[in-house]
Computed example of a mutant assay.
Amino acid sequence: MNRKEFLYTSSTLIGGLSLGRIPFPAFRQSIRIGLITDLHYAERDTPEGSTRFYRESLKKLSECITVMNREKVDFLIQLGDFKDQDDPPEETETLAYLRTMANELSHFNGPIYHVLGNHDHDSISKQQFLDGVTISGFNHPKSYYSFDKNGFHFIVLDANYTATGEAYDHGNFDWKDANIPQDQLEWLRKDLKRTRKPTIVFVHQRLDEKDGNANYCVRNASAVREILEKAENVTLVLQGHYHPGDMSTINGIVYYTLKAAVEGSGLENNSFAILEIDKKLEMNVIGYHKTESRLLRS
Rank of each mutant, 00 (worst) to 15 (best):
K193M: 13
D74H: 12
S10F: 14
V115W: 03
D86I: 01
L295S: 13
Q205I: 00
L17R: 11
L116S: 05
D84K: 01
C64P: 02
K210W: 03
P244D: 07
D122F: 11
Y242M: 05
I112P: 01
G266H: 07
F53G: 01
Y168E: 04
E276C: 11
F154G: 02
F75E: 07
E104K: 02
T257I: 10
I227V: 15
L35S: 05
N179L: 07
T94L: 07
N220P: 05
D208L: 06
S57W: 04
L76W: 13
S62N: 14
S271A: 15
F108C: 11
P181F: 04
F272K: 00
G212M: 04
Y168M: 05
D131T: 11
T9H: 13
L95P: 03
L281R: 05
H121Y: 06
I77C: 05
Q239G: 09
L192A: 06
T51M: 14
Y216H: 14
G240P: 07
D211V: 12
P244N: 12
I31L: 13
R28I: 15
P88C: 06
L116I: 14
A42R: 00
V224C: 02
R294W: 01
S18M: 04
H204K: 10
T46Y: 00
T199C: 12
G110A: 03
G151D: 12
T199L: 08
P141H: 09
E268H: 09
N172Q: 15
